[in-house]
Amino acid sequence: MDVCYALDIEENDTESSCPSFVGGKPNLPLEQAVPECQLCSSQLTFFFQISFPYNHKWEDLSMAVFACTSCVHKEYLIPEMLEGVLEGINIPKGFLTVYQRNFRILVFRTGEAVTKDTYQEKIKYKPIKLRVTNDLDIYTDKLGGNPNWLLDNEAPAMYDGNPMFFLMQILEDYKFEILSDASPQIKLDLNGEPAPSQENYYELFLGNNLYFFGTEDKTNSMVYLISQI
C-alpha cells in the first residue's frame, strides 16, 4: 500500500469507541469464542486489535492478537520459523494454522464484531490512533509502508499460492501494562524454569520486533508473524 499509518498508542486516553486498541476486552464476531492455548488449555490473553482503514487491502476487516501468559515453553518463546532462505519464501499450506500453538491471530469483518463482555481484562485498555504519514520507511509502530528489519529481510512471497504483503510492525520492547488484579506472566527464570514475572506488564514474544504479513486474498485472510531481535 502507498499510504503508511503510524500507530500512536494513547497511553493516557480512555476513549472507548476507538476501533483499534491495546488491552481491555476484545471485539470479536458473536460466534467466535476467546481462543485457548494448545499447550496448556488456558484462555489466551488479548493483547491488541487493529481495524484496517478505508482503501487498505484488508478494508472492512479487523485483526485481533492473543497469546498465552499462563505457560512458557523454551521451543515456543517466539513464533515457529520456517527453514531455508526466508526472503521470498513460499509458506507451505497449513503452516499458518499449525504454528499458532500458544497464540492466535483472528481476522474477521469489523462490522460483525461485538465486545466480549465475559472476557476478564488483563491488559490496560489504550486506544491506538492511526496517523497518516508519507514516510514509508518511518521507524515506528506502523501499519503499511516498508518493514524496518533489524536483521535480514524475511518477507515471504506466497502462502499456498496466495501472494502476501506487509501488514504492520511493532517495535521491540513494548510493555503491555497490566491491571492490578491480573495474573503475572509466566516466564523462564535464570535457571530456565517457568516462574511468575514480578513486572507490572506483559511482553509479546519476549518484546522482540514483530512483523505481520497477510494474504492478499481477503476472503481467506491469514497472517504470518515474524520475530526479530
Rank of each mutant, 00 (worst) to 15 (best):
L151R: 12
I89S: 11
K93D: 06
Y119F: 14
V98D: 07
I128A: 11
V132Q: 14
I105Q: 03
E121S: 15
K93P: 01
L96M: 14
R101Y: 04
Q100A: 06
Y99E: 01
N134F: 05
T133N: 10
N153F: 01
R109P: 05
E154N: 12
T115W: 09
K129M: 12
K126M: 10
D137K: 09
G94C: 11
I89P: 08
I89R: 05
E154P: 02
L136Q: 12
F103G: 00
T140W: 10
F95Y: 15
L86Q: 12
N90L: 00
V107A: 04
N146A: 06
N148F: 03
D141Y: 12
E121V: 12
L143F: 11
K122I: 01
K142A: 03
K124G: 03
K126I: 00
I91M: 01
K116I: 09
I123Y: 09
T140E: 14
N134S: 11
L150Y: 07
T118L: 09
R109F: 13
R104M: 11
N148S: 12
K122L: 05
Y125R: 15
L96T: 00
N90Q: 14
T140P: 03
Y125D: 12
R131N: 14
R109V: 10
V98E: 06
F103Q: 00
L151W: 08
G111A: 12
V98M: 01
R109Y: 10
Y119K: 13
Q100D: 03
